[in-house]
Design a protein around this nucleic acid. Sequence first.
DNA 1: GGGATTCTATGATAAATATCAGTTTTTTTC
DNA 2: GAAAAAAACTGATATTTATCATAGAATCCC
Lengths: 228, 228
Amino acid sequence: MNKCEQCIVRQLSSLRELTRDELIRISHCKTSKIVKRGEVLFNEGDQVNGVFCIKDGVCKVSKMSENGRDQVIKLITKGDLLGERSLITGGSSNLTARALNDMEICFIPKDEIVRDLKQNNNFTMSMLKDLATSLRDADEVIVDMAQKTVKQRLAETLIHLDNKFPKDDEGYIDVYLTREDIANIIGTATESAIRILSDYKKKGLINFKGKRIIIQDVKGLERIAQKY
Amino acid sequence: MNKCEQCIVRQLSSLRELTRDELIRISHCKTSKIVKRGEVLFNEGDQVNGVFCIKDGVCKVSKMSENGRDQVIKLITKGDLLGERSLITGGSSNLTARALNDMEICFIPKDEIVRDLKQNNNFTMSMLKDLATSLRDADEVIVDMAQKTVKQRLAETLIHLDNKFPKDDEGYIDVYLTREDIANIIGTATESAIRILSDYKKKGLINFKGKRIIIQDVKGLERIAQKY
DNA sequence: GGGATTCTATGATAAATATCAGTTTTTTTC
DNA sequence: GAAAAAAACTGATATTTATCATAGAATCCC
Protein backbone atom coordinates (compact mmCIF):
# COMPACT_ATOMS: atom_id res chain seq x y z
CA MET A 1 0.00 0.00 0.00
CA ASN A 2 1.31 3.42 -0.95
CA LYS A 3 1.64 6.08 1.68
CA CYS A 4 -0.71 9.02 1.26
CA GLU A 5 1.83 11.32 2.85
CA GLN A 6 4.00 11.80 -0.21
CA CYS A 7 1.14 11.54 -2.71
CA ILE A 8 0.92 14.27 -5.33
CA VAL A 9 -2.82 14.60 -4.71
CA ARG A 10 -2.24 15.37 -1.08
CA GLN A 11 0.19 18.11 -2.02
CA LEU A 12 -2.13 19.78 -4.53
CA SER A 13 -5.61 19.41 -3.04
CA SER A 14 -7.48 20.26 0.14
CA LEU A 15 -6.20 16.98 1.55
CA ARG A 16 -3.09 18.93 2.54
CA GLU A 17 -5.12 20.22 5.49
CA LEU A 18 -5.53 16.77 7.00
CA THR A 19 -3.55 16.02 10.14
CA ARG A 20 -0.99 13.25 10.31
CA ASP A 21 -3.42 11.02 12.19
CA GLU A 22 -6.26 11.64 9.77
CA LEU A 23 -3.95 10.87 6.89
CA ILE A 24 -2.88 7.59 8.38
CA ARG A 25 -6.49 6.58 8.82
CA ILE A 26 -7.21 7.49 5.18
CA SER A 27 -4.15 5.53 4.10
CA HIS A 28 -5.61 2.41 5.60
CA CYS A 29 -9.06 2.58 4.06
CA LYS A 30 -8.28 3.85 0.57
CA THR A 31 -8.17 1.56 -2.44
CA SER A 32 -5.92 1.99 -5.49
CA LYS A 33 -6.99 1.27 -9.03
CA ILE A 34 -5.88 1.41 -12.66
CA VAL A 35 -8.41 2.77 -15.15
CA LYS A 36 -7.84 2.10 -18.85
CA ARG A 37 -8.38 4.67 -21.58
CA GLY A 38 -12.04 4.92 -22.50
CA GLU A 39 -13.27 3.38 -19.27
CA VAL A 40 -15.84 5.18 -17.16
CA LEU A 41 -15.08 6.16 -13.55
CA PHE A 42 -18.71 6.97 -12.89
CA ASN A 43 -21.80 7.76 -14.88
CA GLU A 44 -24.38 10.53 -14.64
CA GLY A 45 -26.88 9.28 -12.05
CA ASP A 46 -24.45 6.93 -10.31
CA GLN A 47 -24.13 7.10 -6.57
CA VAL A 48 -20.52 8.15 -6.00
CA ASN A 49 -19.73 6.89 -2.54
CA GLY A 50 -16.43 8.60 -2.07
CA VAL A 51 -13.72 10.74 -3.54
CA PHE A 52 -11.27 9.88 -6.32
CA CYS A 53 -7.66 11.03 -6.09
CA ILE A 54 -6.00 11.28 -9.48
CA LYS A 55 -2.42 10.11 -9.15
CA ASP A 56 -1.81 9.95 -12.90
CA GLY A 57 -3.66 10.31 -16.20
CA VAL A 58 -6.46 12.54 -17.45
CA CYS A 59 -10.22 12.18 -17.61
CA LYS A 60 -12.98 14.23 -19.14
CA VAL A 61 -15.99 15.10 -17.04
CA SER A 62 -19.07 15.68 -19.15
CA LYS A 63 -22.81 15.99 -19.08
CA MET A 64 -25.31 14.86 -21.68
CA SER A 65 -27.49 17.66 -23.03
CA GLU A 66 -31.22 17.08 -23.53
CA ASN A 67 -30.67 17.21 -27.28
CA GLY A 68 -28.28 14.26 -27.09
CA ARG A 69 -24.89 15.92 -27.32
CA ASP A 70 -22.21 15.57 -24.73
CA GLN A 71 -20.77 18.70 -23.15
CA VAL A 72 -17.33 18.45 -21.57
CA ILE A 73 -17.46 20.49 -18.35
CA LYS A 74 -13.85 20.06 -17.28
CA LEU A 75 -10.70 18.01 -17.61
CA ILE A 76 -9.36 16.40 -14.46
CA THR A 77 -5.69 15.61 -14.24
CA LYS A 78 -2.83 14.51 -12.01
CA GLY A 79 -3.12 15.90 -8.49
CA ASP A 80 -6.86 16.67 -8.70
CA LEU A 81 -9.72 15.44 -6.57
CA LEU A 82 -12.87 14.17 -8.24
CA GLY A 83 -16.33 13.49 -6.85
CA GLU A 84 -16.17 15.71 -3.80
CA ARG A 85 -19.14 17.80 -4.91
CA SER A 86 -21.54 14.91 -5.24
CA LEU A 87 -20.32 13.73 -1.90
CA ILE A 88 -21.20 17.09 -0.36
CA THR A 89 -24.58 17.53 -2.01
CA GLY A 90 -25.31 13.96 -1.04
CA GLY A 91 -27.18 12.83 -4.13
CA SER A 92 -25.98 11.00 -7.21
CA SER A 93 -23.53 12.49 -9.68
CA ASN A 94 -24.75 14.91 -12.29
CA LEU A 95 -21.72 14.21 -14.45
CA THR A 96 -19.94 11.37 -16.24
CA ALA A 97 -16.17 10.85 -15.90
CA ARG A 98 -14.29 8.95 -18.61
CA ALA A 99 -10.55 8.30 -18.86
CA LEU A 100 -8.74 9.92 -21.80
CA ASN A 101 -5.65 7.77 -21.17
CA ASP A 102 -4.64 5.12 -18.67
CA MET A 103 -5.11 6.39 -15.15
CA GLU A 104 -3.85 5.63 -11.71
CA ILE A 105 -6.33 6.58 -9.01
CA CYS A 106 -7.17 6.09 -5.36
CA PHE A 107 -10.64 5.94 -3.92
CA ILE A 108 -11.48 7.19 -0.40
CA PRO A 109 -14.86 6.09 1.00
CA LYS A 110 -17.41 8.80 1.65
CA ASP A 111 -17.74 8.26 5.39
CA GLU A 112 -14.05 8.88 5.98
CA ILE A 113 -14.13 12.19 4.17
CA VAL A 114 -17.35 13.31 5.82
CA ARG A 115 -15.87 12.48 9.20
CA ASP A 116 -12.87 14.68 8.54
CA LEU A 117 -15.05 17.48 7.18
CA LYS A 118 -17.03 17.49 10.39
CA GLN A 119 -14.02 17.38 12.67
CA ASN A 120 -11.30 19.35 10.91
CA ASN A 121 -12.46 22.88 10.21
CA ASN A 122 -9.29 23.74 8.29
CA PHE A 123 -10.10 20.96 5.87
CA THR A 124 -13.69 22.17 5.50
CA MET A 125 -12.55 25.76 4.98
CA SER A 126 -10.08 24.70 2.32
CA MET A 127 -12.77 22.75 0.53
CA LEU A 128 -15.05 25.78 0.79
CA LYS A 129 -12.38 27.93 -0.79
CA ASP A 130 -11.92 25.43 -3.62
CA LEU A 131 -15.62 25.36 -4.40
CA ALA A 132 -15.88 29.15 -4.31
CA THR A 133 -13.00 29.38 -6.77
CA SER A 134 -14.61 26.77 -9.01
CA LEU A 135 -17.81 28.80 -9.01
CA ARG A 136 -15.89 31.86 -10.08
CA ASP A 137 -14.37 29.87 -12.93
CA ALA A 138 -17.82 28.59 -13.86
CA ASP A 139 -19.03 32.19 -14.15
CA GLU A 140 -16.27 32.81 -16.68
CA VAL A 141 -17.26 29.77 -18.69
CA ILE A 142 -20.91 30.80 -18.72
CA VAL A 143 -20.04 34.28 -19.99
CA ASP A 144 -17.79 32.86 -22.69
CA MET A 145 -20.33 30.28 -23.81
CA ALA A 146 -23.07 32.88 -23.91
CA GLN A 147 -21.21 35.76 -25.51
CA LYS A 148 -18.27 34.54 -27.52
CA THR A 149 -18.17 33.07 -31.01
CA VAL A 150 -17.06 29.51 -31.69
CA LYS A 151 -13.76 30.82 -33.07
CA GLN A 152 -13.11 32.78 -29.90
CA ARG A 153 -13.98 29.85 -27.68
CA LEU A 154 -11.68 27.52 -29.59
CA ALA A 155 -8.81 30.00 -29.33
CA GLU A 156 -9.46 30.25 -25.60
CA THR A 157 -9.60 26.49 -25.19
CA LEU A 158 -6.28 26.06 -26.98
CA ILE A 159 -4.63 28.56 -24.63
CA HIS A 160 -6.24 26.84 -21.70
CA LEU A 161 -4.98 23.40 -22.78
CA ASP A 162 -1.52 24.85 -23.32
CA ASN A 163 -1.48 26.16 -19.75
CA LYS A 164 -2.97 23.11 -18.10
CA PHE A 165 -0.99 20.27 -19.66
CA PRO A 166 2.72 19.46 -19.92
CA LYS A 167 4.46 19.33 -23.30
CA ASP A 168 6.19 16.35 -24.89
CA ASP A 169 9.78 16.37 -26.23
CA GLU A 170 8.79 18.27 -29.36
CA GLY A 171 6.59 20.79 -27.54
CA TYR A 172 3.23 19.26 -28.37
CA ILE A 173 0.52 19.49 -25.71
CA ASP A 174 0.42 16.15 -23.95
CA VAL A 175 -3.28 15.29 -23.86
CA TYR A 176 -5.28 12.82 -25.92
CA LEU A 177 -8.35 14.60 -27.28
CA THR A 178 -10.28 13.72 -30.42
CA ARG A 179 -11.68 16.52 -32.56
CA GLU A 180 -15.06 15.55 -31.19
CA ASP A 181 -13.80 16.02 -27.62
CA ILE A 182 -12.53 19.48 -28.53
CA ALA A 183 -15.87 20.31 -30.15
CA ASN A 184 -17.62 19.12 -27.01
CA ILE A 185 -15.50 21.39 -24.84
CA ILE A 186 -16.40 24.51 -26.81
CA GLY A 187 -19.94 23.41 -27.59
CA THR A 188 -20.00 23.19 -31.35
CA ALA A 189 -20.27 20.67 -34.17
CA THR A 190 -17.23 18.47 -34.76
CA GLU A 191 -16.96 19.71 -38.35
CA SER A 192 -16.86 23.31 -37.19
CA ALA A 193 -14.06 22.57 -34.75
CA ILE A 194 -12.08 20.80 -37.48
CA ARG A 195 -12.52 23.68 -39.89
CA ILE A 196 -11.38 26.30 -37.42
CA LEU A 197 -8.40 24.21 -36.32
CA SER A 198 -7.33 23.91 -39.97
CA ASP A 199 -7.78 27.63 -40.37
CA TYR A 200 -5.62 28.38 -37.32
CA LYS A 201 -2.99 26.00 -38.65
CA LYS A 202 -3.01 27.74 -42.03
CA LYS A 203 -2.58 31.08 -40.24
CA GLY A 204 0.42 29.77 -38.30
CA LEU A 205 -1.24 30.12 -34.91
CA ILE A 206 -0.94 26.42 -34.18
CA ASN A 207 0.38 23.26 -35.77
CA PHE A 208 -0.72 19.67 -35.36
CA LYS A 209 -0.02 16.11 -36.39
CA GLY A 210 -3.18 14.13 -35.76
CA LYS A 211 -4.19 14.67 -32.18
CA ARG A 212 -0.86 16.20 -31.21
CA ILE A 213 -1.26 19.98 -31.13
CA ILE A 214 1.38 22.65 -30.59
CA ILE A 215 0.72 26.33 -29.96
CA GLN A 216 2.90 28.56 -32.12
CA ASP A 217 1.45 32.01 -31.46
CA VAL A 218 -0.15 32.46 -28.04
CA LYS A 219 -0.50 36.23 -28.49
CA GLY A 220 -2.34 35.71 -31.73
CA LEU A 221 -4.75 33.28 -30.12
CA GLU A 222 -5.28 35.67 -27.22
CA ARG A 223 -6.10 38.44 -29.64
CA ILE A 224 -8.74 36.25 -31.28
CA ALA A 225 -10.15 35.13 -27.93
CA GLN A 226 -10.52 38.67 -26.67
CA LYS A 227 -11.19 40.92 -29.57
CA TYR A 228 -14.57 40.88 -31.12
CA MET B 1 -32.58 47.92 14.83
CA ASN B 2 -34.37 44.88 13.50
CA LYS B 3 -33.82 41.51 15.09
CA CYS B 4 -32.06 38.98 12.89
CA GLU B 5 -33.92 36.15 14.58
CA GLN B 6 -37.16 36.49 12.67
CA CYS B 7 -35.53 37.67 9.46
CA ILE B 8 -36.55 35.91 6.24
CA VAL B 9 -32.90 35.64 5.18
CA ARG B 10 -32.04 33.76 8.31
CA GLN B 11 -34.83 31.27 7.63
CA LEU B 12 -33.83 30.62 4.04
CA SER B 13 -30.04 30.73 4.04
CA SER B 14 -27.10 29.08 5.78
CA LEU B 15 -27.47 31.68 8.52
CA ARG B 16 -30.04 29.32 10.03
CA GLU B 17 -27.10 27.32 11.37
CA LEU B 18 -25.89 30.17 13.57
CA THR B 19 -26.41 29.80 17.30
CA ARG B 20 -28.46 32.25 19.29
CA ASP B 21 -25.34 33.93 20.63
CA GLU B 22 -23.76 34.24 17.22
CA LEU B 23 -26.98 35.70 15.88
CA ILE B 24 -27.14 38.30 18.62
CA ARG B 25 -23.59 39.34 17.84
CA ILE B 26 -24.45 39.63 14.14
CA SER B 27 -27.55 41.65 15.02
CA HIS B 28 -25.40 44.22 16.69
CA CYS B 29 -22.88 44.76 13.94
CA LYS B 30 -25.07 44.56 10.84
CA THR B 31 -26.22 47.65 8.98
CA SER B 32 -29.51 48.03 7.12
CA LYS B 33 -29.90 49.89 3.86
CA ILE B 34 -32.36 50.79 1.12
CA VAL B 35 -31.14 50.41 -2.46
CA LYS B 36 -33.09 52.15 -5.22
CA ARG B 37 -33.86 50.58 -8.58
CA GLY B 38 -30.90 50.85 -10.92
CA GLU B 39 -28.38 51.40 -8.16
CA VAL B 40 -25.31 49.21 -7.91
CA LEU B 41 -24.65 47.13 -4.78
CA PHE B 42 -21.12 46.39 -5.90
CA ASN B 43 -19.13 46.46 -9.11
CA GLU B 44 -16.86 43.94 -10.76
CA GLY B 45 -13.47 44.47 -9.15
CA ASP B 46 -14.84 46.01 -5.96
CA GLN B 47 -13.65 44.70 -2.66
CA VAL B 48 -16.80 43.30 -1.03
CA ASN B 49 -16.05 43.38 2.67
CA GLY B 50 -19.00 41.38 3.86
CA VAL B 51 -22.22 39.63 3.01
CA PHE B 52 -25.51 41.14 1.85
CA CYS B 53 -28.77 39.75 3.15
CA ILE B 54 -31.67 40.44 0.79
CA LYS B 55 -34.73 41.23 2.87
CA ASP B 56 -36.77 42.48 -0.06
CA GLY B 57 -36.42 43.27 -3.77
CA VAL B 58 -34.51 41.72 -6.65
CA CYS B 59 -31.12 42.36 -8.18
CA LYS B 60 -29.34 41.05 -11.24
CA VAL B 61 -25.80 39.77 -10.89
CA SER B 62 -23.87 40.07 -14.10
CA LYS B 63 -20.44 40.00 -15.65
CA MET B 64 -19.11 42.02 -18.55
CA SER B 65 -17.85 39.93 -21.45
CA GLU B 66 -14.61 40.87 -23.19
CA ASN B 67 -16.62 41.86 -26.24
CA GLY B 68 -18.55 44.44 -24.22
CA ARG B 69 -21.83 42.71 -23.59
CA ASP B 70 -23.22 42.08 -20.15
CA GLN B 71 -24.11 38.53 -19.17
CA VAL B 72 -26.61 38.07 -16.35
CA ILE B 73 -25.35 35.16 -14.24
CA LYS B 74 -28.19 35.01 -11.75
CA LEU B 75 -31.07 36.87 -10.16
CA ILE B 76 -30.93 37.34 -6.42
CA THR B 77 -34.13 37.77 -4.50
CA LYS B 78 -35.80 37.96 -1.09
CA GLY B 79 -34.22 35.56 1.40
CA ASP B 80 -30.95 35.15 -0.50
CA LEU B 81 -27.40 35.84 0.56
CA LEU B 82 -25.07 37.77 -1.74
CA GLY B 83 -21.32 38.21 -1.73
CA GLU B 84 -20.39 35.14 0.31
CA ARG B 85 -18.27 33.71 -2.50
CA SER B 86 -16.01 36.71 -2.86
CA LEU B 87 -15.72 36.72 0.88
CA ILE B 88 -14.53 33.11 0.85
CA THR B 89 -12.13 33.42 -2.07
CA GLY B 90 -10.83 36.57 -0.43
CA GLY B 91 -10.29 38.71 -3.49
CA SER B 92 -12.47 41.31 -5.13
CA SER B 93 -15.80 40.51 -6.72
CA ASN B 94 -15.88 39.05 -10.23
CA LEU B 95 -19.48 40.20 -10.66
CA THR B 96 -21.63 43.31 -10.63
CA ALA B 97 -24.90 43.46 -8.69
CA ARG B 98 -27.57 45.98 -9.68
CA ALA B 99 -31.04 46.43 -8.21
CA LEU B 100 -33.99 45.68 -10.52
CA ASN B 101 -36.39 47.34 -8.09
CA ASP B 102 -36.14 49.03 -4.73
CA MET B 103 -34.41 46.75 -2.26
CA GLU B 104 -34.15 46.36 1.46
CA ILE B 105 -30.87 44.79 2.50
CA CYS B 106 -28.62 44.19 5.47
CA PHE B 107 -24.86 44.12 5.40
CA ILE B 108 -22.78 41.91 7.71
CA PRO B 109 -19.05 42.75 7.90
CA LYS B 110 -16.63 40.13 6.61
CA ASP B 111 -14.80 39.53 9.88
CA GLU B 112 -17.98 38.52 11.67
CA ILE B 113 -18.85 35.92 9.06
CA VAL B 114 -15.32 34.58 8.87
CA ARG B 115 -15.26 34.25 12.64
CA ASP B 116 -18.42 32.15 12.58
CA LEU B 117 -17.16 30.04 9.68
CA LYS B 118 -14.06 29.19 11.67
CA GLN B 119 -15.90 28.39 14.89
CA ASN B 120 -19.22 26.89 13.83
CA ASN B 121 -18.68 23.81 11.69
CA ASN B 122 -22.41 23.39 11.04
CA PHE B 123 -22.44 26.83 9.47
CA THR B 124 -19.39 26.01 7.34
CA MET B 125 -20.86 22.70 6.25
CA SER B 126 -24.13 24.36 5.28
CA MET B 127 -22.25 26.92 3.24
CA LEU B 128 -20.26 24.13 1.63
CA LYS B 129 -23.47 22.38 0.66
CA ASP B 130 -24.86 25.60 -0.83
CA LEU B 131 -21.78 26.13 -2.96
CA ALA B 132 -21.75 22.52 -4.14
CA THR B 133 -25.39 22.88 -5.19
CA SER B 134 -24.63 26.14 -6.97
CA LEU B 135 -21.84 24.41 -8.85
CA ARG B 136 -24.22 21.72 -9.96
CA ASP B 137 -26.62 24.38 -11.20
CA ALA B 138 -23.76 26.10 -12.99
CA ASP B 139 -23.01 22.85 -14.83
CA GLU B 140 -26.58 22.85 -16.11
CA VAL B 141 -26.27 26.43 -17.30
CA ILE B 142 -23.01 25.69 -19.10
CA VAL B 143 -24.55 22.73 -20.92
CA ASP B 144 -27.58 24.76 -21.92
CA MET B 145 -25.53 27.71 -23.12
CA ALA B 146 -23.24 25.45 -25.11
CA GLN B 147 -25.78 23.08 -26.61
CA LYS B 148 -29.22 24.67 -26.78
CA THR B 149 -30.59 27.13 -29.29
CA VAL B 150 -31.64 30.64 -28.35
CA LYS B 151 -35.30 29.61 -28.64
CA GLN B 152 -34.75 26.74 -26.22
CA ARG B 153 -32.88 28.91 -23.76
CA LEU B 154 -35.60 31.55 -23.80
CA ALA B 155 -38.28 28.93 -23.17
CA GLU B 156 -36.22 27.59 -20.30
CA THR B 157 -35.66 31.05 -18.85
CA LEU B 158 -39.39 31.80 -18.94
CA ILE B 159 -40.14 28.60 -17.01
CA HIS B 160 -37.37 29.44 -14.59
CA LEU B 161 -38.72 32.95 -13.98
CA ASP B 162 -42.21 31.52 -13.51
CA ASN B 163 -40.90 29.17 -10.80
CA LYS B 164 -38.69 31.66 -9.05
CA PHE B 165 -40.92 34.71 -8.75
CA PRO B 166 -44.34 35.32 -7.24
CA LYS B 167 -47.28 36.40 -9.40
CA ASP B 168 -49.26 39.62 -9.18
CA ASP B 169 -53.10 39.81 -8.90
CA GLU B 170 -53.57 39.02 -12.57
CA GLY B 171 -51.03 36.17 -12.66
CA TYR B 172 -48.18 38.09 -14.25
CA ILE B 173 -44.65 37.23 -13.11
CA ASP B 174 -43.62 39.86 -10.60
CA VAL B 175 -40.16 40.87 -11.75
CA TYR B 176 -38.97 43.97 -13.58
CA LEU B 177 -36.83 42.89 -16.53
CA THR B 178 -36.25 44.83 -19.74
CA ARG B 179 -36.01 42.94 -23.02
CA GLU B 180 -32.30 43.64 -22.88
CA ASP B 181 -32.08 42.02 -19.45
CA ILE B 182 -33.83 38.93 -20.78
CA ALA B 183 -31.49 38.85 -23.76
CA ASN B 184 -28.55 39.12 -21.38
CA ILE B 185 -29.78 36.17 -19.36
CA ILE B 186 -29.96 33.86 -22.36
CA GLY B 187 -26.95 35.37 -24.11
CA THR B 188 -28.40 36.74 -27.33
CA ALA B 189 -29.10 40.02 -29.11
CA THR B 190 -31.96 42.10 -27.72
CA GLU B 191 -33.72 42.00 -31.09
CA SER B 192 -33.60 38.21 -31.16
CA ALA B 193 -35.14 37.98 -27.70
CA ILE B 194 -37.91 40.38 -28.73
CA ARG B 195 -38.68 38.42 -31.87
CA ILE B 196 -38.91 35.09 -30.08
CA LEU B 197 -41.05 36.56 -27.30
CA SER B 198 -43.44 37.90 -29.92
CA ASP B 199 -43.47 34.51 -31.59
CA TYR B 200 -44.27 32.72 -28.31
CA LYS B 201 -47.05 35.24 -27.69
CA LYS B 202 -48.50 34.61 -31.14
CA LYS B 203 -48.41 30.86 -30.46
CA GLY B 204 -50.29 31.32 -27.19
CA LEU B 205 -47.45 30.07 -25.02
CA ILE B 206 -47.17 33.34 -23.13
CA ASN B 207 -48.79 36.74 -23.02
CA PHE B 208 -47.38 40.09 -22.02
CA LYS B 209 -48.17 43.75 -21.52
CA GLY B 210 -44.89 45.62 -21.64
CA LYS B 211 -42.57 44.08 -19.11
CA ARG B 212 -45.33 42.12 -17.40
CA ILE B 213 -45.21 38.54 -18.65
CA ILE B 214 -47.60 35.68 -17.96
CA ILE B 215 -47.00 32.02 -18.80
CA GLN B 216 -50.00 30.42 -20.48
CA ASP B 217 -48.65 27.04 -21.54
CA VAL B 218 -45.85 25.66 -19.37
CA LYS B 219 -45.98 22.24 -21.04
CA GLY B 220 -45.56 23.84 -24.43
CA LEU B 221 -42.54 25.81 -23.25
CA GLU B 222 -41.06 22.69 -21.67
CA ARG B 223 -41.45 20.85 -24.94
CA ILE B 224 -39.54 23.60 -26.75
CA ALA B 225 -36.84 23.73 -24.07
CA GLN B 226 -36.22 20.00 -24.20
CA LYS B 227 -36.92 18.80 -27.68
CA TYR B 228 -34.45 19.55 -30.35
C1' DG C 1 -0.58 -7.20 -42.06
C1' DG C 2 -5.04 -6.57 -43.83
C1' DG C 3 -9.90 -5.69 -43.09
C1' DA C 4 -12.99 -3.13 -40.14
C1' DT C 5 -13.78 0.77 -37.71
C1' DT C 6 -13.19 5.17 -36.12
C1' DC C 7 -11.47 9.68 -36.94
C1' DT C 8 -10.37 13.64 -39.82
C1' DA C 9 -11.29 16.41 -43.56
C1' DT C 10 -13.87 19.12 -47.14
C1' DG C 11 -17.67 20.92 -50.03
C1' DA C 12 -22.41 22.26 -50.57
C1' DT C 13 -26.31 23.87 -48.49
C1' DA C 14 -29.64 25.09 -44.91
C1' DA C 15 -30.74 27.11 -40.65
C1' DA C 16 -29.93 30.12 -36.84
C1' DT C 17 -28.56 34.36 -35.20
C1' DA C 18 -26.52 39.09 -35.35
C1' DT C 19 -26.38 43.52 -37.18
C1' DC C 20 -28.05 47.73 -39.00
C1' DA C 21 -31.54 51.06 -39.83
C1' DG C 22 -35.55 53.07 -38.86
C1' DT C 23 -40.28 53.53 -36.42
C1' DT C 24 -43.37 53.38 -32.71
C1' DT C 25 -44.31 53.07 -27.94
C1' DT C 26 -43.36 53.66 -23.17
C1' DT C 27 -41.13 55.82 -19.42
C1' DT C 28 -38.78 59.46 -17.23
C1' DT C 29 -38.00 64.10 -16.08
C1' DC C 30 -38.72 68.69 -15.28
C1' DG D 1 -48.42 67.40 -19.18
C1' DA D 2 -44.98 68.15 -22.70
C1' DA D 3 -40.31 67.25 -24.14
C1' DA D 4 -36.60 64.09 -23.92
C1' DA D 5 -34.84 59.71 -23.27
C1' DA D 6 -35.15 54.96 -23.13
C1' DA D 7 -37.17 50.83 -24.54
C1' DA D 8 -39.74 47.91 -27.71
C1' DC D 9 -40.51 46.57 -32.18
C1' DT D 10 -39.96 45.36 -37.31
C1' DG D 11 -37.77 44.53 -41.79
C1' DA D 12 -33.78 43.72 -44.58
C1' DT D 13 -29.52 41.74 -44.86
C1' DA D 14 -25.07 39.73 -43.49
C1' DT D 15 -22.66 36.48 -40.81
C1' DT D 16 -22.11 32.50 -38.23
C1' DT D 17 -22.86 27.87 -37.45
C1' DA D 18 -25.06 23.30 -38.23
C1' DT D 19 -26.18 19.63 -41.16
C1' DC D 20 -25.64 16.35 -44.73
C1' DA D 21 -22.89 13.79 -47.82
C1' DT D 22 -18.79 11.75 -49.04
C1' DA D 23 -13.85 10.62 -49.22
C1' DG D 24 -9.33 9.83 -47.41
C1' DA D 25 -6.33 8.78 -43.30
C1' DA D 26 -5.30 6.76 -39.06
C1' DT D 27 -6.04 3.27 -35.70
C1' DC D 28 -7.58 -0.96 -33.88
C1' DC D 29 -7.85 -5.78 -33.64
C1' DC D 30 -7.50 -10.40 -34.44
